[in-house]
């Protein structure tokens, strides 16, 4: 699990706001290129890596996790060194006030979201929801200096280091979905010396947060025979709806039964988990899963897909919380699934 922590720290620090994955794609390739026989970077911000098993006529199993993260683009450079921004992906503006961000202009600078202190508020104002258009990012520069560094469209992302909490919990930014990239890389480490019954293709896809774009195009390019999509899912917290009660941090990967996935491949995944004594939990998502699963499933002539999610708290914030044990169990599960020759649909 220390190894997963190590990979997670490296991955979390790479900036890759949706649609501008190119800002971090080369660092990702440096970090994980050696895991693959060959790899390529796509125009839609995805990393595609392949490991050939050497068997003639072998089928291809795809692992998908998305590389992009929610963030912002600069929309206006204002007097006094303030920046107006628009959100890229789903962000709750209530979490932003007074938080730090990094602004990836000609050089990278730090900014802080503005905050109206209690002293200056009208009575009752703090009860009202805040909108992103009410906030600005304060940089401390003069407008003229700032215009030299940033322009409209410059990406902005959370600034937050990875920290260990109690036990095997960790907190940090972009665990959605870098933690699943960590799981895939760890799974490839488990498989390293083994003979594989299938070719493995991996897509660390871009544009998930803005409509599953990298997954749709990369899986078209890979054309796999079956696919495992890994994403994060909201773990139960006290104010969450009742139906999420059974998604627990520490309970293992959450395997989804959904119309967007293959029941046969999902059953197979559950069977592999049981056979190997790997903890897992089940979740039913009747139609939408909010992940790449749907885009991968409907690529080309259709690809049988299973969705496994790592339980996570505080999704789309600078302090997402996951359990390293869950990540380890997901890594274990997908490596056993790949090693199991029996995926035959």
């Amino acid at each position: 699990m220390d190894r997963i922590y190590e990979i997670a720290c490296e991955l979390s620090s790479i900036p890759a706001v949706s649609g501008r994955e190119d800002m971090g794609l080369h660092r990702l390739a440096e970090l994980c290129g050696d895991y693959f026989d060959r790899y390529e970077l796509t125009p839609v911000g995805s990393f595609i890596g392949r490991i050939d098993c050497g068997r003639i006529g072998a089928k291809t199993l795809l692992f998908d996790a998305h590389f992009d993260e929610v963030g912002f683009f600069v929309s206006e450079i204002c007097e006094g060194g303030f920046l107006k921004v628009v959100n890229i992906g789903g962000i709750d503006p209530r979490i932003l006030s007074a938080s730090e961000v990094l602004i990836y202009g000609k050089r990278t600078i730090t900014g802080v979201f503005t905050s109206k202190p209690p002293h200056l508020q009208e009575p009752g104002e703090s009860e009202k929801p805040i909108k992103l258009t009410d906030l600005a990012v304060d940089t401390g520069y003069l407008k003229e200096q700032l215009s030299e560094i940033v322009s409209i469209g410059t990406p902005v992302a959370y600034k937050s280091p990875v920290e260990r909490l109690q036990g095997d919990y960790i907190t940090g930014k972009s665990f959605d979905d870098r933690i699943c990239i960590a799981a895939i890389l760890r799974a490839l480490e488990f498989l390293k010396e083994k003979e594989l019954p299938v070719n493995i293709a991996v897509q660390f896809s871009g544009g998930e947060e803005i409509g599953y774009k990298g997954a749709a195009t990369a899986s078209y390019s890979i054309n796999p025979d079956f696919a495992v999509v890994l994403d994060v899912t909201n773990a139960y917290v006290p104010d969450a709806p009742d139906y999420r009660k059974d998604i627990k941090i520490g309970g293992g990967g959450s395997i989804s039964y959904s119309a967007k996935t293959s029941r046969k491949l999902t059953d197979k995944t559950v069977a592999v988990a049981r056979k190997n004594g790997i903890p897992y939990q089940l979740f039913a998502e009747p139609n939408r899963t909010g992940t790449n699963a749907g885009a991968v499933q409907t690529s080309r002539g259709g690809i049988p897909t299973v969705l496994i999610s790592v339980p996570l708290k505080n999704m789309h914030t600078a302090n997402e919380v996951v359990s390293l044990l869950d990540v380890y169990n997901v890594a274990k599960l997908i490596s056993e699934l790949a090693a199991d020759g029996g995926i035959d649909l």
Partner: peptide, 24 residues
Amino acid sequence: QYEILTAGGTDTSSMQLAGAGCDA
């Protein structure tokens, strides 16, 4: 000038996502 539009869509999206994707 640069444009950021928070509503509405264009043919840009479908071209970007055709097949394995392209620069759009």
